[in-house]
């Protein structure tokens, strides 16, 4: 009997191995383990054996049974998996078809530049301030030490509104608004639109500036140089030379203009200097106008044209392209 059981087991294991279909497997299962299955029969016979032989034979049959069952179930999951796979494989989906998605949207290059500048100055603790586009003579000019008959008014061709207000010619009035409302120390950055009555083709009557102001005790021209150099190196690249030229603005003294030397051997601009911003130490007169004690505080201010920076950085050759908003241009940013 022992030999028969082992033989039976080996036979079935063998035939399970050769099975190719689930129904065939079911058949084998019932043939061996079913109510009248061959192994079930042996199990029944065990009870008719003499008591001393029963445990040994019982163990033998049960062992054979569990071995067969393990192989059966492994085979079964293998066959089920194969059947599902073959079913899924018949699905006609072409996964190379394109994704169904919305077109990507893009930020305007002017916003990109403003964001980058704001982020860089964020590290120096500068926060954004906003001011109105429609300004008064007082904030746009007079408080900035540009009196009504100051020759520097020639630098600002101004749009006036019929209500006697004007469209700000620079973002500098935000300095005044801030200094009137807050006490030093101050570190602010004011991006925004500005307006100049400038009809020629290389200028735009509307453009963007970003103004910076830093007021504290003991602020020096050296601090201005260090801050702006660090900024320009971050914005353009560490290997871009930066230089400062003496200049004049009514609301700063000393005043400087800042140039950057293009460093990209592959570019037409390589080796050329480009003026990128004006800056200077805040005029004492501006402090007096805003009730800040010029003997106690000093500060520096700077202003730059966003379009100019965007055009340099992205190599856009005509300022008007920035306002056409052709979707094929916008897509590239």
């Amino acid at each position: 009997m022992e030999k028969e059981i082992l033989e039976l087991k080996d036979n079935y294991i063998n035939s399970i191995d050769n099975v190719n279909g689930l129904s065939e497997l079911d058949l084998i299962k019932s043939k061996v383990l079913g109510k009248n299955g061959e192994l079930t029969r042996f199990l029944k016979q065990v009870s008719s054996l003499p008591p001393e032989k029963r445990p040994v034979m019982g163990q033998l049959v049960n062992k054979a049974k569990s071995e067969i069952m393990a192989i059966l179930s492994a085979k079964q999951s293998k066959l089920e998996h194969a059947r599902l796979h073959s079913k899924l494989s018949k699905d006609g989906t072409d996964a190379s078809l394109p994704g169904i998605s919305v077109k990507k949207g893009h930020l305007h290059p002017i916003s990109l530049v403003i964001r980058e500048i704001v982020t860089l100055f964020d590290r120096f603790g500068f926060t954004v301030k906003e001011g109105p586009d429609i300004e008064s003579e007082e904030f746009n000019f007079e408080a900035l030490n540009i009196g009504k008959d100051h020759p520097a008014r020639d630098m600002h061709d101004t749009f006036y509104l019929t209500n006697k207000q004007l469209l700000r010619t620079h973002t500098s009035p935000v300095q005044i608004r801030t200094m009137l409302n807050e006490k030093p120390p101050l570190r602010i950055l004011a991006p925004g639109k500005v307006y100049r009555y400038d009809a020629d083709t290389s200028h735009s009557p509307v453009f963007h500036q970003i103004e910076g102001l830093y007021v504290d005790k003991n602020v020096t021209l050296a601090d201005l140089k260090g801050t702006l150099t660090t900024f320009l190196h971050s914005f353009f690249g560490q290997d871009y030379d930066v230089r400062f030229r003496s200049s004049y603005f009514p609301f700063t003294e000393p005043s400087v203009e800042v140039d950057v030397k293009w460093n990209d051997p592959g570019s037409k601009l390589h080796g050329k200097w480009f003026e990128v911003m004006g800056a200077g130490l805040v005029q004492r007169e501006v402090f007096r106008q805003t009730k800040i004690d010029p003997d106690l505080y000093t500060g520096f201010a700077f202003g730059m044209g966003i379009e100019r920076l965007a055009m340099l950085k992205y190599q856009i050759n005509d300022i008007r392209l920035l306002y056409e908003n052709d979707s094929r241009l916008l897509k590239q940013f």
């Binding site: 120096f124 603790g125 926060t127 120390p185 101050l186 570190r187 830093y214 504290d216 005790k217 003991n218 602020v219 020096t220 021209l221 050296a222 601090d223 140089k225 260090g226 801050t227 150099t229 660090t230 230089r243 400062f244 030229r245 003496s246 400087v256």
Partner: peptide, 14 residues
Amino acid sequence: MENIPSTLPQGPSL
């Protein structure tokens, strides 16, 4: 102008 040093402001971040 090139002989003016370059320094970063000393005050605390505001």
